[in-house]
Nucleic acid binder design. Structure first.
Length: 1053
RNA sequence: GGGCCUAUAGCUCAGUUGGUUAGAGCGCACGCCUGAUAAGCGUGAGGUCAGUAGUUCAAGUCUACUUAGGCCCA
């Protein structure tokens, strides 16, 4: 028996049942174990942080991951899926700070790092329950039992192993990182915090003169909005390709301008900043200025390194300033990077409160911003200030105390990514990015501008940087495993009662003796959490300490998928670490999904209160509808405008149509005891319409796989939807209802069942990756059992020779039907009123045959008795030719318009000649052109004496004559229609036999008597009596204007 | 300031290598059908394909610029 769906479908209820089934039967586990020995498809799960509530965008990302993994499983791959959790980092610390009421970072020391980290460890799991609930309810299959967790000792140990590799290769060094810093709170701010506090402020904008060493009375004109950084100036930067000029300033008195003998150098495009007249003396490209020396403005500091010369930098622009940029590497990221490249010194005379220190006696104790004017005054007295203005710009302020932030150099550890950036770029070319522009554009660009990775963080909760530094001689040593650490720090371990925890503060207690007899202590920093997640390919397996083989067989990943925000995050760190350690990309295919915006296209945020709760959606519409909506609505790599209505639509249109189709099948399959396992009727013995739908189904399977193989899930869902709604439900099922409900059995009926069954079964499989629940349910209904669709394999697409012709034929039939419907509409002739015939002009015998083979379908659909054909050569058909620009344009180029105009004017007769002879000569402006068959398309416009309609390709003429017979038949149909409605209203079974009693006008009575046999057959009536009797159910009706009283009752057999 | 993406019906989206009537769904109006029925079908209204210039016999499609929006970076 097939389960009949009688009640309204409760999608979320079905999903709960399926979840139970999956868990009891361990279907997920089986979907992996049943593929043992099959080729592997490797997937990496990007670890989410479980200290935030999951949102709708997580459902999106996880749907994509799940869909691809399920698809590959059903395609015969073995797909392991290990869950992961990202557990370290600042967000966790901030959450805990809030929780225990800490305002300053230093308070953590007072609170106790051990206690604090203990809290962090707990806090990480704050929303774990929500995450697991979401993962489960949305049907995301991933192994939550054995996840990798970044705070585990084993995970950290693998990271240490990797860091040691970097360290031993000389890829880790100490440098400065320029960070936004609040001098009042005395703490650096994260970029997220900086974004909170931009304000428009006025700052001094000064043009300063810096004297060239080798040229007399010649100065570089330099612009700055932070005069206090001039004390730390070490170089000037120019753009190598920008035009610069040397000008002599002129003194103007009245009309007279005289040279002053003072020369300035600046960008040609910025000459407008000069306040007096000038003469251009010399022009050069920026690169010609390179390495020219100039005199220092301030000489408070002695340095080992050389400085104070011109360097080249691409970031210099001529949008404002003078085109010459002053470099203070301690106070600007760009400055720092460039200066590092040139080996320039770093001068940092400012203390942690933002005041100048002892080494700058003149401004000692002054807050740097307050010193701006003093410094400019100093320069002015030395005649080194060219001019001073006010400059309005947007500048970051502390979101807590609104002090202006300073950009400060802080000690930091770096990884020298730039040393192998070229290799990263090469390997990137091997990665298949979906969409490609993210890989070539956003990611490629990032790699082009690659900078060294600032690895360290001055925080508490994270993976400690495993570098120990000797207090005495400064020697650095990197520890690459727990064993190594324990051996080194052996004596200490025993006394400290060491419990294995690689976090602060425990690791910091472990010290050991240097070769020089000094004490080696760990450098206090942690590493960037992005290194944690980027290390997951090997760290999730505790490689190389364990699972060597597993890791080696699972690198690189075949597939990863995350949001676009991961481009410079996880996608980058995976690539950077993978390239260095294994000289391979970490992933072969990466599917990037864009943001989910609200209905208005606004970004979703908690503050705007426009977020959507995924749990509510799943409960209300079911996970499947939500998943299907998210991937089918718009390509996943474009921003999705989220509209809840859309989910309701998907459910109503797609899912209920599919279930409705199944439900139709089940109803009749049960009546007929259809057994799907009985012998299949050979394809060539099935009716044309069966072969037609199966041929479409085959195309669908092939296209679906093509799309899924190229990760275009959106297109895959769309073609499945189109097939299910338009072809299967609205045409195949509708057209074939009669075959299912007719009482006699036989090959035709069996073929119908087998065809529909196969369509349903196949669709069920195709939707399984995206709609795993509904798919599972329908599959179980169909197979009447406890098998899971997720353990099955996709069917092969087998194209047959006549596929194309079949599809084209049916397409033509559907066109004819729709033309006739339009004509009936216009002539006010109901479909229930039978008509005598239609006339179709055909080009040749082949076209005629092809329509003839569809005749039955067409006639039934439009309720017409027969189709007649007329040759287009017949004088009653008038023809028009439509020029084919594709062929004509190629042949005649510019002449095409004139020729086309002539072609449109061709008469029926001329076209007939062309058709017969294969070519026809036309004259245009005295030139003869030969038009061949391919150059035109023939349209039939009219058939003399008939009601005619055309859609441009097919023309149909309709005979609207109504004979008495036709009218009677029409009345009988109306009568049948009323009886059928009554049967249903009375609640009779589809198979019940009935008796009909009626009384009506003479006209209708005649019609009923004449059509008695037909009526009886249609309504399963054993008797039709023209004396009224109310029976079990009765009513009064008007049928085409005739009053009528009808009663029906069931007959007991 | 730089990079990438987007702009087609009231809304959400299709639109193949350029080819002459730019499509679908939803919504709206009207009608139809009905033993799949809390479905279904048809017809209609609704488009300067963001703008400008160019390439071409021919541009929604290719190029440049402009405008607006989005994301990322500075």
């Amino acid at each position: 028996m097939f389960k009949e769906l009688t009640d309204k479908i409760q999608y979320s209820q079905i999903e709960k049942e399926i979840l139970k089934f999956w868990e009891e039967q361990k279907i997920f586990e089986q979907s992996i174990s049943s593929r043992e020995g099959k080729p592997k498809f490797t997937f990496y799960e990007g670890p989410p942080t479980a200290n935030g509530r999951p949102g709708i965008h997580h459902v999106m990302a996880r749907t994509l991951k799940d869909a691809i993994c399920r698809y590959k499983t059903m395609s015969g791959y073995q797909v392991h899926r290990k869950a992961g959790w990202d557990t370290h980092g600042l967000p966790v610390e901030i959450e805990v700070e809030k929780q225990i009421g800490i305002k300053h970072k230093d308070d953590i020391l007072k609170y106790g790092v051990e206690k604090f980290n203990e809290e962090c460890k707990k806090s990480v799991w704050k929303y774990k329950v929500d995450w697991e609930k979401m993962t489960r309810e949305m049907g995301y299959w991933v192994d939550l039992e054995k996840p990798y967790v970044t705070f585990q000792n084993e995970y950290i140990e693998s990271i240490w192993w990797a860091l040691k590799k970097f360290f031993d290769a000389g890829m880790i060094y100490r440098g400065y990182k320029i960070q936004p810093y609040c001098p009042r709170c005395e703490t650096p701010l994260s970029s997220h915090e900086v974004a909170l506090g931009y304000k428009d402020v006025k700052d001094p904008s000064a043009y300063v003169k810096m004297k060239l060493k080798d040229e007399t009375n010649t100065y570089f004109l330099v612009w700055t909005t932070t005069p206090w950084t001039l004390i730390s100036n070490v170089a000037l930067a120019v753009h190598p390709e920008v035009e610069y000029v040397k000008v002599e300033l002129l003194k103007t008195e009245g009309e007279q301008s005289t040279p002053t003998g003072e020369f300035l150098i600046l960008a040609k495009a910025r000459l407008e900043v000069l306040k007096e007249k000038y003469t251009i003396i010399e022009e050069y490209k920026g690169k010609q200025l390179s390495e020219k020396k100039y005199e220092r403005l301030f000489s408070y500091h002695q340095t080992k390194e050389n400085g104070w010369y011109v360097v080249e930098a691409d970031f210099v622009t001529t949008a404002d300033g003078s085109g010459i940029v002053h470099m203070a590497p301690a106070y600007g990221e760009d400055d720092y990077q460039v200066c590092r490249k040139y080996g320039l010194p770093t001068i940092h005379p400012v203390n942690k409160s933002g005041e100048f220190g002892d080494d700058v006696p003149e401004f000692k104790g002054k807050f740097v911003k307050d010193a701006d004017n003093d410094i400019l005054q100093n320069l002015k007295t030395r005649n080194l200030l060219y001019k001073k203005e006010q400059y309005l710009h947007s500048y970051p302020h502390c979101w807590r105390c609104s002090s202006p932030l300073l950009y400060f150099a802080r000690d930091s550890w770096y990884i020298s990514n730039t040393k192998y950036a070229q290799r990263m770029r090469e390997l990137n070319k091997q990665i298949n990015w979906i969409p490609p522009e993210v890989g070539a554009g956003r990611f490629g660009n990032w790699l082009e501008e690659n900078k060294d990775w600032a690895l360290s963080r001055d925080r508490y909760w994270g993976t400690p940087l495993p570098i120990w530094v000797c207090e005495k001689c400064g020697k650095q040593e990197c520890i690459g495993s727990i064993k190594e650490l324990e051996e080194k720090a052996n004596s200490k371990l025993k006394t400290e009662n060491w419990k294995l925890d690689l976090h602060k503060p425990f690791v910091d207690k472990l010290t050991f003796t240097c070769e020089c007899s000094g004490t080696m202590k760990r450098t206090p920093e942690l590493i960037d959490v992005w290194f944690d997640s980027g290390a997951m390919p090997f760290a999730q397996w505790h490689y190389p300490f364990e699972n060597k083989e597993i890791f080696e067989n699972a690198y690189p990943a075949d597939f990863i998928s995350e949001g676009i925000d991961q481009t410079r995050g996880w996608f980058y760190t995976l690539h950077a670490i993978g390239t260095f350690l294994f000289d391979k990309p970490a992933y072969k295919n990466v599917l990037v999904n864009e943001l989910i915006l609200d209905k208005q296209g606004q970004k979703m945020s908690k503050s705007k209160k426009n977020t959507v709760d995924p749990f509510m959606l799943i409960e209300k519409y079911g996970a499947d509808a939500t998943r299907w909506y998210l991937v089918s609505n718009s390509p996943v790599w474009k921003p999705t405008l989220f509209d809840e209505e859309g989910i309701a639509d998907v459910q109503r249109k797609f899912f209920s149509t599919l279930l409705n189709t199944y439900s139709f099948f089940a109803l009749y399959a049960n009546i007929d005891n259809f057994n799907p396992n009985e012998k299949q009727i050979p394809l060539q013995e099935r009716p044309e319409i069966d072969r037609w739908i199966l041929s479409h189904l085959n195309s669908l399977i092939g296209d679906y796989k093509t799309y899924m193989n190229t990760y275009d899930i959106t297109k895959a869902t769309r073609i499945v939807t189109d097939f299910t709604l338009d072809l299967l439900s609205n045409w195949y099922v509708r057209r074939n209802r009669r075959r299912f409900w007719k009482s006699e059995k036989g090959n035709d009926k069996t073929a119908a069942y087998q065809t529909l069954y196969y369509c349903l079964e196949t669709i069920t499989k195709l939707i399984a990756p995206i709609a795993p629940f509904t798919s599972e349910k329908v599959y179980q209904y169909l197979t009447n059992g406890k098998n899971s669709v997720h353990l099955t394999f996709f069917p092969e697409a087998i194209a047959t020779k006549d596929d194309f012709h079949l599809q084209a034929k049916m397409d033509k039939a559907i066109r004819i039907v729709s033309i006739v419907r339009a004509m009936r509409m216009k002539s006010n002739l109901k479909v229930r009123q039978p008509l005598q015939k239609i006339l179709v002009p055909v080009l040749h015998e082949i076209e005629k045959k092809s329509i003839q083979s569809m005749e039955e379908t067409i006639l039934e659909e439009i309720n017409v008795k027969k189709i007649e054909y007329v040759s287009t050569d017949s004088p009653i058909v008038s023809k028009k030719a439509k020029p084919n620009f594709r062929t004509l344009g190629q042949k005649y180029g510019k002449k095409v318009q004139e020729i086309a105009a002539k072609v449109k004017e061709l008469t029926s007769q001329e076209i007939t000649t062309l058709q017969k002879e294969g070519e026809y000569n036309i004259q245009v402006n005295g030139t003869t052109y030969t038009i061949i068959k391919e150059d035109i398309e023939i349209l039939h416009e009219d058939v003399k004496g008939w009601l005619v309609e055309t859609d441009g390709i097919i023309t149909v003429a309709l005979d609207t004559t109504l004979t008495t017979e036709l009218v009677n038949e029409g009345l009988a149909r109306e009568f049948v229609n009323r009886i059928q409605n009554m049967r249903k209203d009375a609640g009779f079974e589809v198979t019940d036999r009935i008796k009909i009693y009626y009384s009506t006008t003479e006209k209708l009575t005649q019609a009923i008597i004449l059509m008695k046999e037909y009526i009886a057959k249609e309504t399963l009536a054993s008797d039709i009596s023209n004396t009224f009797h109310s029976g079990e159910f009765s009513l009064k009706e008007e049928i085409n204007g005739e009053q009528c009283e009808i009663g029906i009752e069931r007959v007991k057999i």
